[in-house]
Design a protein around this nucleic acid. Structure first.
Lengths: 233, 233
DNA sequence: CGTAGAGTGTCAGCGTGGTGACACAGTTCC
DNA sequence: GGAACTGTGTCACCACGCTGACACTCTACG
Protein backbone atom coordinates (compact mmCIF):
# COMPACT_ATOMS: atom_id res chain seq x y z
CA UNK A 1 0.00 0.00 0.00
CA UNK A 2 1.96 2.95 -1.27
CA UNK A 3 0.85 6.33 -2.49
CA UNK A 4 3.33 8.85 -3.75
CA UNK A 5 3.38 12.30 -5.21
CA UNK A 6 3.47 12.16 -8.97
CA UNK A 7 5.19 15.26 -10.38
CA UNK A 8 3.17 17.10 -12.98
CA UNK A 9 -0.17 15.75 -11.83
CA UNK A 10 -0.56 18.01 -8.81
CA UNK A 11 0.27 17.00 -5.25
CA UNK A 12 -1.30 13.91 -3.73
CA UNK A 13 -3.80 15.22 -1.14
CA UNK A 14 -2.84 12.52 1.37
CA UNK A 15 0.83 13.49 1.08
CA UNK A 16 -0.01 17.16 1.56
CA UNK A 17 -2.00 16.40 4.70
CA UNK A 18 0.90 14.21 5.84
CA UNK A 19 3.40 17.00 5.26
CA UNK A 20 1.31 19.48 7.24
CA UNK A 21 1.13 16.95 10.02
CA UNK A 22 4.90 16.49 9.97
CA UNK A 23 5.28 20.26 10.14
CA UNK A 24 3.27 20.19 13.36
CA UNK A 25 4.72 17.07 14.97
CA UNK A 26 8.42 16.69 14.14
CA UNK A 27 10.64 18.69 16.44
CA UNK A 28 9.66 21.95 18.10
CA UNK A 29 7.53 24.15 15.92
CA UNK A 30 7.59 27.14 18.28
CA UNK A 31 11.25 27.87 17.80
CA UNK A 32 11.84 26.69 14.25
CA UNK A 33 8.88 27.29 11.94
CA UNK A 34 8.81 25.53 8.59
CA UNK A 35 8.03 27.64 5.53
CA UNK A 36 5.41 26.72 2.91
CA UNK A 37 8.16 25.56 0.53
CA UNK A 38 9.51 23.23 3.19
CA UNK A 39 6.08 21.70 3.64
CA UNK A 40 5.66 21.40 -0.13
CA UNK A 41 9.03 19.65 -0.44
CA UNK A 42 7.97 17.24 2.26
CA UNK A 43 4.66 16.55 0.57
CA UNK A 44 6.52 15.64 -2.60
CA UNK A 45 8.62 13.05 -0.83
CA UNK A 46 6.32 11.40 1.69
CA UNK A 47 4.71 8.04 1.04
CA UNK A 48 1.91 6.63 3.17
CA UNK A 49 2.21 3.02 4.28
CA UNK A 50 0.04 0.65 6.27
CA UNK A 51 1.48 -2.16 8.37
CA UNK A 52 -0.14 -5.28 9.74
CA UNK A 53 0.41 -6.35 13.36
CA UNK A 54 3.77 -8.06 13.65
CA UNK A 55 5.14 -6.59 10.45
CA UNK A 56 8.74 -5.35 10.60
CA UNK A 57 9.52 -1.75 9.61
CA UNK A 58 13.25 -2.35 9.75
CA UNK A 59 15.36 -5.10 11.24
CA UNK A 60 18.46 -4.94 13.41
CA UNK A 61 21.70 -5.24 11.49
CA UNK A 62 20.23 -4.77 8.03
CA UNK A 63 20.98 -1.90 5.67
CA UNK A 64 19.20 1.36 6.48
CA UNK A 65 15.59 1.23 5.35
CA UNK A 66 14.33 4.80 5.52
CA UNK A 67 12.56 7.17 7.85
CA UNK A 68 9.23 6.22 9.44
CA UNK A 69 6.76 8.63 11.00
CA UNK A 70 3.97 7.01 12.98
CA UNK A 71 0.49 8.44 12.40
CA UNK A 72 -1.44 5.84 14.35
CA UNK A 73 -0.86 2.56 16.13
CA UNK A 74 2.08 1.35 18.14
CA UNK A 75 5.57 0.37 17.03
CA UNK A 76 7.96 -1.52 19.27
CA UNK A 77 11.73 -0.96 19.16
CA UNK A 78 13.34 -4.10 20.54
CA UNK A 79 16.54 -6.09 20.69
CA UNK A 80 16.55 -9.87 20.95
CA UNK A 81 13.48 -12.04 21.20
CA UNK A 82 11.70 -14.45 23.49
CA UNK A 83 12.97 -14.41 27.07
CA UNK A 84 15.83 -12.07 26.14
CA UNK A 85 13.71 -9.44 24.45
CA UNK A 86 14.59 -5.91 25.58
CA UNK A 87 12.23 -3.11 24.55
CA UNK A 88 13.99 0.21 24.01
CA UNK A 89 10.90 2.27 23.32
CA UNK A 90 7.34 2.19 22.10
CA UNK A 91 6.54 4.61 19.30
CA UNK A 92 3.11 6.17 19.15
CA UNK A 93 1.42 8.88 17.13
CA UNK A 94 3.87 11.59 16.16
CA UNK A 95 7.02 9.59 16.84
CA UNK A 96 9.81 9.21 14.30
CA UNK A 97 12.50 6.61 13.76
CA UNK A 98 14.88 5.16 11.21
CA UNK A 99 16.72 8.41 10.57
CA UNK A 100 19.61 7.73 12.95
CA UNK A 101 21.04 4.83 10.92
CA UNK A 102 20.87 7.06 7.86
CA UNK A 103 22.63 9.95 9.56
CA UNK A 104 25.34 7.73 11.01
CA UNK A 105 25.54 5.39 8.00
CA UNK A 106 25.31 2.28 10.12
CA UNK A 107 22.74 -0.51 10.37
CA UNK A 108 20.03 -0.02 13.01
CA UNK A 109 20.92 -1.77 16.29
CA UNK A 110 17.31 -2.73 17.00
CA UNK A 111 14.26 -4.04 15.21
CA UNK A 112 11.11 -1.94 14.72
CA UNK A 113 7.93 -3.98 14.62
CA UNK A 114 4.28 -2.97 14.39
CA UNK A 115 2.23 -4.06 17.39
CA UNK A 116 -1.20 -2.99 16.10
CA UNK A 117 -2.24 -2.07 12.69
CA UNK A 118 -0.05 0.95 12.05
CA UNK A 119 -0.38 3.87 9.65
CA UNK A 120 2.91 5.51 8.74
CA UNK A 121 4.48 8.12 6.58
CA UNK A 122 7.71 7.06 4.97
CA UNK A 123 10.75 8.81 3.52
CA UNK A 124 13.22 6.85 1.41
CA UNK A 125 16.91 7.21 2.38
CA UNK A 126 17.59 9.25 -0.73
CA UNK A 127 14.68 11.64 -0.18
CA UNK A 128 15.60 12.09 3.47
CA UNK A 129 19.16 12.89 2.55
CA UNK A 130 18.06 15.32 -0.10
CA UNK A 131 15.61 17.12 2.18
CA UNK A 132 18.04 17.39 5.09
CA UNK A 133 20.82 18.64 2.84
CA UNK A 134 18.85 21.13 0.78
CA UNK A 135 16.35 22.53 3.28
CA UNK A 136 18.11 24.22 6.18
CA UNK A 137 15.01 24.89 8.25
CA UNK A 138 14.04 21.26 8.02
CA UNK A 139 17.49 20.13 9.15
CA UNK A 140 17.26 22.53 12.06
CA UNK A 141 13.84 21.20 12.95
CA UNK A 142 15.06 17.64 12.68
CA UNK A 143 17.84 18.54 15.10
CA UNK A 144 15.28 19.32 17.79
CA UNK A 145 13.47 16.07 17.03
CA UNK A 146 16.61 13.99 17.56
CA UNK A 147 17.46 16.06 20.64
CA UNK A 148 14.05 15.29 22.11
CA UNK A 149 14.59 11.59 21.52
CA UNK A 150 17.99 11.78 23.19
CA UNK A 151 16.43 13.46 26.21
CA UNK A 152 13.78 10.78 26.42
CA UNK A 153 16.34 8.00 26.12
CA UNK A 154 18.36 9.57 28.93
CA UNK A 155 15.19 9.74 30.96
CA UNK A 156 14.69 6.00 30.57
CA UNK A 157 18.32 5.51 31.61
CA UNK A 158 17.77 7.44 34.83
CA UNK A 159 14.63 5.44 35.46
CA UNK A 160 16.47 2.15 35.14
CA UNK A 161 19.49 3.11 37.21
CA UNK A 162 17.77 3.83 40.47
CA UNK A 163 15.49 2.27 42.99
CA UNK A 164 13.46 -0.85 43.43
CA UNK A 165 11.29 -2.44 40.76
CA UNK A 166 8.27 -0.66 42.22
CA UNK A 167 9.91 2.74 41.74
CA UNK A 168 11.03 1.87 38.22
CA UNK A 169 7.56 0.70 37.31
CA UNK A 170 5.95 3.83 38.68
CA UNK A 171 8.29 6.03 36.64
CA UNK A 172 7.70 4.01 33.50
CA UNK A 173 3.94 4.25 33.89
CA UNK A 174 4.16 8.01 34.33
CA UNK A 175 6.41 8.33 31.27
CA UNK A 176 4.38 6.10 29.00
CA UNK A 177 0.90 7.31 29.91
CA UNK A 178 -0.98 9.30 27.30
CA UNK A 179 -2.97 12.49 27.99
CA UNK A 180 -5.80 10.54 29.60
CA UNK A 181 -3.52 8.54 31.89
CA UNK A 182 -3.90 5.33 29.93
CA UNK A 183 -1.11 2.90 29.07
CA UNK A 184 -1.91 0.32 26.39
CA UNK A 185 0.84 -2.21 27.01
CA UNK A 186 0.87 -5.85 27.97
CA UNK A 187 2.57 -6.68 31.25
CA UNK A 188 5.10 -8.73 29.27
CA UNK A 189 6.05 -5.60 27.32
CA UNK A 190 6.33 -3.51 30.46
CA UNK A 191 8.63 -6.18 31.86
CA UNK A 192 10.73 -6.10 28.70
CA UNK A 193 11.03 -2.31 29.02
CA UNK A 194 12.28 -2.63 32.60
CA UNK A 195 14.64 -5.54 32.16
CA UNK A 196 12.44 -7.45 34.59
CA UNK A 197 10.25 -10.58 34.36
CA UNK A 198 6.53 -10.67 33.92
CA UNK A 199 5.61 -12.27 37.26
CA UNK A 200 7.57 -9.60 39.12
CA UNK A 201 5.89 -6.81 37.18
CA UNK A 202 2.52 -8.44 37.73
CA UNK A 203 3.14 -8.48 41.48
CA UNK A 204 4.16 -4.80 41.51
CA UNK A 205 1.13 -3.79 39.45
CA UNK A 206 -1.07 -5.70 41.86
CA UNK A 207 0.39 -3.76 44.77
CA UNK A 208 -0.04 -0.42 42.98
CA UNK A 209 -3.64 -1.33 42.17
CA UNK A 210 -4.32 -2.32 45.81
CA UNK A 211 -2.90 1.03 46.88
CA UNK A 212 -5.46 2.70 44.62
CA UNK A 213 -2.78 4.26 42.40
CA UNK A 214 -3.69 2.49 39.17
CA UNK A 215 -6.38 0.34 37.62
CA UNK A 216 -5.27 -2.77 35.76
CA UNK A 217 -7.20 -4.37 32.95
CA UNK A 218 -6.53 -6.43 29.84
CA UNK A 219 -3.51 -5.00 27.99
CA UNK A 220 -4.22 -1.65 29.55
CA UNK A 221 -3.53 0.31 32.70
CA UNK A 222 -5.14 3.52 33.87
CA UNK A 223 -3.44 5.94 36.21
CA UNK A 224 -5.63 6.98 39.13
CA UNK A 225 -3.20 8.87 41.35
CA UNK A 226 -0.35 10.55 39.47
CA UNK A 227 0.94 12.31 42.59
CA UNK A 228 1.12 9.06 44.50
CA UNK A 229 3.04 7.37 41.70
CA UNK A 230 5.43 10.29 41.53
CA UNK A 231 6.10 9.93 45.24
CA UNK A 232 7.06 6.28 44.73
CA UNK A 233 9.39 7.11 41.86
CA UNK B 1 40.10 31.49 33.00
CA UNK B 2 38.54 32.67 29.78
CA UNK B 3 40.07 33.61 26.46
CA UNK B 4 37.92 34.94 23.68
CA UNK B 5 38.25 36.19 20.17
CA UNK B 6 38.46 39.98 20.14
CA UNK B 7 37.09 41.36 16.87
CA UNK B 8 39.48 43.69 15.10
CA UNK B 9 42.63 42.30 16.68
CA UNK B 10 42.86 39.15 14.56
CA UNK B 11 41.66 35.73 15.61
CA UNK B 12 42.86 34.24 18.88
CA UNK B 13 45.23 31.39 17.88
CA UNK B 14 43.86 29.13 20.62
CA UNK B 15 40.32 29.63 19.33
CA UNK B 16 41.42 28.89 15.78
CA UNK B 17 43.07 25.63 16.87
CA UNK B 18 39.93 24.85 18.86
CA UNK B 19 37.71 25.45 15.86
CA UNK B 20 39.82 23.18 13.68
CA UNK B 21 39.58 20.56 16.38
CA UNK B 22 35.79 20.91 16.51
CA UNK B 23 35.71 20.54 12.74
CA UNK B 24 37.43 17.19 13.16
CA UNK B 25 35.62 15.90 16.23
CA UNK B 26 32.00 17.02 16.27
CA UNK B 27 29.75 14.75 14.23
CA UNK B 28 30.86 12.83 11.18
CA UNK B 29 33.32 14.69 9.03
CA UNK B 30 33.31 12.19 6.19
CA UNK B 31 29.76 12.87 5.13
CA UNK B 32 29.38 16.54 6.04
CA UNK B 33 32.54 18.57 5.54
CA UNK B 34 32.74 22.03 7.10
CA UNK B 35 33.94 24.86 4.89
CA UNK B 36 36.67 27.34 5.87
CA UNK B 37 34.03 29.98 6.66
CA UNK B 38 32.30 27.59 9.04
CA UNK B 39 35.55 26.99 10.88
CA UNK B 40 36.24 30.72 10.99
CA UNK B 41 32.79 31.40 12.43
CA UNK B 42 33.43 28.77 15.09
CA UNK B 43 36.82 30.26 15.93
CA UNK B 44 35.16 33.62 16.51
CA UNK B 45 32.72 32.18 19.03
CA UNK B 46 34.68 29.60 21.00
CA UNK B 47 36.09 30.33 24.41
CA UNK B 48 38.58 28.08 26.18
CA UNK B 49 37.91 27.23 29.81
CA UNK B 50 39.74 25.24 32.46
CA UNK B 51 37.93 23.44 35.25
CA UNK B 52 39.17 22.12 38.57
CA UNK B 53 38.25 18.64 39.80
CA UNK B 54 34.75 18.73 41.26
CA UNK B 55 33.74 21.93 39.49
CA UNK B 56 30.26 21.97 37.97
CA UNK B 57 29.84 22.78 34.26
CA UNK B 58 26.08 22.99 34.57
CA UNK B 59 23.64 21.83 37.21
CA UNK B 60 20.40 19.89 36.92
CA UNK B 61 17.31 22.09 36.86
CA UNK B 62 19.09 25.38 36.31
CA UNK B 63 18.76 27.60 33.26
CA UNK B 64 20.72 26.44 30.21
CA UNK B 65 24.38 27.32 30.55
CA UNK B 66 25.89 26.82 27.10
CA UNK B 67 27.64 24.21 25.03
CA UNK B 68 30.74 22.43 26.34
CA UNK B 69 33.26 20.54 24.23
CA UNK B 70 35.75 18.46 26.18
CA UNK B 71 39.35 18.67 25.00
CA UNK B 72 40.93 16.75 27.86
CA UNK B 73 39.95 15.25 31.18
CA UNK B 74 36.78 13.54 32.26
CA UNK B 75 33.32 14.98 32.89
CA UNK B 76 30.62 13.03 34.70
CA UNK B 77 26.92 13.41 33.84
CA UNK B 78 24.97 12.35 36.91
CA UNK B 79 21.62 12.58 38.65
CA UNK B 80 21.31 12.53 42.42
CA UNK B 81 24.16 12.17 44.85
CA UNK B 82 25.53 9.89 47.53
CA UNK B 83 23.98 6.43 47.55
CA UNK B 84 21.40 7.48 44.94
CA UNK B 85 23.84 8.83 42.41
CA UNK B 86 23.18 7.55 38.90
CA UNK B 87 25.81 8.23 36.25
CA UNK B 88 24.37 8.69 32.77
CA UNK B 89 27.64 9.00 30.93
CA UNK B 90 31.28 9.96 31.23
CA UNK B 91 32.48 12.53 28.72
CA UNK B 92 36.03 12.31 27.44
CA UNK B 93 38.09 14.01 24.77
CA UNK B 94 35.94 15.02 21.82
CA UNK B 95 32.60 14.70 23.60
CA UNK B 96 30.00 17.46 23.60
CA UNK B 97 27.17 18.35 25.95
CA UNK B 98 24.91 21.17 27.03
CA UNK B 99 23.38 21.74 23.62
CA UNK B 100 20.27 19.63 24.20
CA UNK B 101 18.80 21.96 26.86
CA UNK B 102 19.37 24.86 24.47
CA UNK B 103 17.71 23.11 21.55
CA UNK B 104 14.73 22.01 23.62
CA UNK B 105 14.58 25.17 25.75
CA UNK B 106 14.41 23.25 28.99
CA UNK B 107 16.73 22.97 31.99
CA UNK B 108 19.24 20.11 31.88
CA UNK B 109 17.94 17.02 33.74
CA UNK B 110 21.41 16.09 35.02
CA UNK B 111 24.49 17.74 36.47
CA UNK B 112 27.82 17.84 34.61
CA UNK B 113 30.85 17.82 36.89
CA UNK B 114 34.57 17.71 36.17
CA UNK B 115 36.28 14.62 37.59
CA UNK B 116 39.87 15.56 36.73
CA UNK B 117 41.26 18.86 35.70
CA UNK B 118 39.35 19.46 32.48
CA UNK B 119 40.11 21.65 29.47
CA UNK B 120 37.03 22.69 27.53
CA UNK B 121 35.84 24.79 24.68
CA UNK B 122 32.68 26.71 25.38
CA UNK B 123 29.91 28.27 23.31
CA UNK B 124 27.48 30.68 24.92
CA UNK B 125 23.77 29.99 24.33
CA UNK B 126 23.50 33.01 22.04
CA UNK B 127 26.54 32.08 19.96
CA UNK B 128 25.36 28.49 19.64
CA UNK B 129 21.94 29.64 18.50
CA UNK B 130 23.46 32.04 16.03
CA UNK B 131 25.84 29.46 14.57
CA UNK B 132 23.22 26.73 14.26
CA UNK B 133 20.74 29.10 12.67
CA UNK B 134 23.05 30.83 10.23
CA UNK B 135 25.45 28.07 9.18
CA UNK B 136 23.60 25.21 7.49
CA UNK B 137 26.55 22.86 7.23
CA UNK B 138 27.26 23.26 10.91
CA UNK B 139 23.65 22.46 11.81
CA UNK B 140 23.83 19.38 9.62
CA UNK B 141 27.04 18.33 11.29
CA UNK B 142 25.58 18.92 14.71
CA UNK B 143 22.69 16.68 13.72
CA UNK B 144 25.07 13.75 13.31
CA UNK B 145 26.68 14.57 16.65
CA UNK B 146 23.35 14.42 18.48
CA UNK B 147 22.40 11.29 16.53
CA UNK B 148 25.63 9.60 17.67
CA UNK B 149 24.84 10.47 21.27
CA UNK B 150 21.34 9.05 20.89
CA UNK B 151 22.78 5.82 19.50
CA UNK B 152 25.19 5.57 22.41
CA UNK B 153 22.45 6.26 24.94
CA UNK B 154 20.34 3.51 23.39
CA UNK B 155 23.35 1.22 23.58
CA UNK B 156 23.59 1.82 27.33
CA UNK B 157 19.86 1.12 27.58
CA UNK B 158 20.27 -2.26 25.89
CA UNK B 159 23.21 -3.01 28.16
CA UNK B 160 21.16 -2.33 31.28
CA UNK B 161 18.05 -4.21 30.21
CA UNK B 162 19.54 -7.65 29.82
CA UNK B 163 21.46 -10.24 31.71
CA UNK B 164 23.22 -10.61 35.00
CA UNK B 165 25.50 -8.01 36.56
CA UNK B 166 28.51 -9.81 35.11
CA UNK B 167 27.16 -9.44 31.58
CA UNK B 168 26.27 -5.78 32.16
CA UNK B 169 29.71 -5.06 33.54
CA UNK B 170 31.44 -6.75 30.61
CA UNK B 171 29.41 -4.68 28.14
CA UNK B 172 30.11 -1.47 30.01
CA UNK B 173 33.85 -2.15 30.08
CA UNK B 174 33.87 -2.82 26.34
CA UNK B 175 31.90 0.38 25.69
CA UNK B 176 33.94 2.63 27.94
CA UNK B 177 37.41 1.39 27.04
CA UNK B 178 39.64 3.72 25.07
CA UNK B 179 41.81 2.71 22.09
CA UNK B 180 44.36 0.98 24.34
CA UNK B 181 41.74 -0.99 26.27
CA UNK B 182 42.04 1.12 29.38
CA UNK B 183 39.16 2.33 31.56
CA UNK B 184 39.98 5.10 34.03
CA UNK B 185 36.99 4.86 36.37
CA UNK B 186 36.62 4.12 40.05
CA UNK B 187 34.59 1.06 40.93
CA UNK B 188 32.09 3.33 42.66
CA UNK B 189 31.53 5.16 39.36
CA UNK B 190 31.17 1.92 37.43
CA UNK B 191 28.58 0.86 39.99
CA UNK B 192 26.73 4.17 39.55
CA UNK B 193 26.69 3.63 35.79
CA UNK B 194 25.16 0.19 36.21
CA UNK B 195 22.62 0.99 38.89
CA UNK B 196 24.48 -1.48 41.12
CA UNK B 197 26.44 -1.21 44.40
CA UNK B 198 30.17 -1.06 44.73
CA UNK B 199 30.70 -4.37 46.57
CA UNK B 200 28.79 -6.23 43.87
CA UNK B 201 30.83 -4.60 41.12
CA UNK B 202 34.01 -5.28 43.03
CA UNK B 203 33.13 -8.98 43.22
CA UNK B 204 32.35 -9.16 39.50
CA UNK B 205 35.60 -7.40 38.60
CA UNK B 206 37.47 -9.86 40.81
CA UNK B 207 35.91 -12.76 38.93
CA UNK B 208 36.73 -11.21 35.56
CA UNK B 209 40.31 -10.61 36.67
CA UNK B 210 40.63 -14.22 37.90
CA UNK B 211 39.37 -15.40 34.52
CA UNK B 212 42.22 -13.44 32.93
CA UNK B 213 39.84 -11.13 31.06
CA UNK B 214 40.87 -7.87 32.71
CA UNK B 215 43.52 -6.41 34.97
CA UNK B 216 42.34 -4.27 37.88
CA UNK B 217 44.39 -1.52 39.47
CA UNK B 218 43.82 1.74 41.28
CA UNK B 219 41.07 3.72 39.53
CA UNK B 220 41.88 1.91 36.35
CA UNK B 221 41.07 -1.30 34.51
CA UNK B 222 42.82 -2.76 31.51
CA UNK B 223 41.11 -5.13 29.10
CA UNK B 224 43.14 -8.25 28.39
CA UNK B 225 40.67 -10.40 26.45
CA UNK B 226 38.12 -8.42 24.46
CA UNK B 227 36.71 -11.54 22.78
CA UNK B 228 36.16 -13.22 26.11
CA UNK B 229 34.34 -10.19 27.49
CA UNK B 230 32.21 -10.02 24.37
CA UNK B 231 31.21 -13.65 24.89
CA UNK B 232 30.03 -12.84 28.43
CA UNK B 233 27.98 -9.85 27.25
C1' DC C 1 57.94 12.16 55.06
C1' DG C 2 53.66 11.75 57.01
C1' DT C 3 48.98 12.44 57.07
C1' DA C 4 44.23 12.94 55.13
C1' DG C 5 41.25 11.35 51.84
C1' DA C 6 39.76 8.51 48.33
C1' DG C 7 39.54 3.97 46.56
C1' DT C 8 39.60 -1.17 47.16
C1' DG C 9 38.91 -5.96 49.17
C1' DT C 10 35.94 -8.69 51.85
C1' DC C 11 32.30 -10.69 54.74
C1' DA C 12 27.75 -12.59 56.99
C1' DG C 13 22.98 -11.91 56.74
C1' DC C 14 19.03 -10.74 54.31
C1' DG C 15 15.52 -9.70 50.84
C1' DT C 16 13.99 -8.67 46.21
C1' DG C 17 13.22 -10.44 42.20
C1' DG C 18 14.16 -14.54 38.96
C1' DT C 19 12.57 -19.45 37.61
C1' DG C 20 9.41 -22.53 35.81
C1' DA C 21 5.10 -23.89 36.09
C1' DC C 22 0.07 -24.14 35.93
C1' DA C 23 -4.82 -22.47 35.83
C1' DC C 24 -7.75 -19.19 34.18
C1' DA C 25 -9.61 -14.92 31.69
C1' DG C 26 -10.12 -11.97 27.67
C1' DT C 27 -9.92 -11.52 22.68
C1' DT C 28 -10.18 -12.93 17.85
C1' DC C 29 -11.64 -15.28 14.13
C1' DC C 30 -13.91 -18.82 11.72
C1' DG D 1 -20.59 -20.86 19.58
C1' DG D 2 -16.32 -22.77 20.02
C1' DA D 3 -11.31 -23.22 19.14
C1' DA D 4 -6.88 -21.07 19.30
C1' DC D 5 -4.19 -17.66 21.04
C1' DT D 6 -2.59 -14.24 23.84
C1' DG D 7 -2.54 -12.17 28.18
C1' DT D 8 -3.07 -12.38 33.41
C1' DG D 9 -2.86 -14.21 38.32
C1' DT D 10 -0.32 -16.97 41.38
C1' DC D 11 2.89 -20.07 43.72
C1' DA D 12 7.19 -22.46 46.05
C1' DC D 13 11.90 -22.44 45.60
C1' DC D 14 16.20 -20.38 44.97
C1' DA D 15 20.00 -17.19 43.90
C1' DC D 16 21.92 -12.83 42.92
C1' DG D 17 22.92 -8.72 44.49
C1' DC D 18 22.07 -5.27 48.43
C1' DT D 19 23.25 -3.78 53.29
C1' DG D 20 26.37 -2.08 56.48
C1' DA D 21 30.58 -2.65 58.13
C1' DC D 22 35.59 -2.77 58.78
C1' DA D 23 40.48 -3.17 57.44
C1' DC D 24 43.67 -2.15 54.13
C1' DT D 25 46.02 0.30 50.06
C1' DC D 26 47.04 3.88 47.04
C1' DT D 27 47.59 8.78 45.96
C1' DA D 28 47.95 13.66 46.66
C1' DC D 29 49.71 17.26 49.00
C1' DG D 30 51.48 20.01 52.59
Amino acid sequence: MVTQFLPGRGPDPAAVRGAAWVARCVGRGETVPLGPEDVAALAGSLQTRSLQPGQVLFAAGTGPAGVWLVRSGQVELAVGSGRRRAVLAMLGEGDVDGDIPLLLRMPPPYTARAVDRVECLFLSPEEFDRLITSRGQLARRWLTSVAARLASSQGRLVGLLGGTLTAQTARLLLDEADRDGRIALSQATIAAMLGARRPSVNKVLGELANAGLIEVSYRSIRLLDTKGLGALA
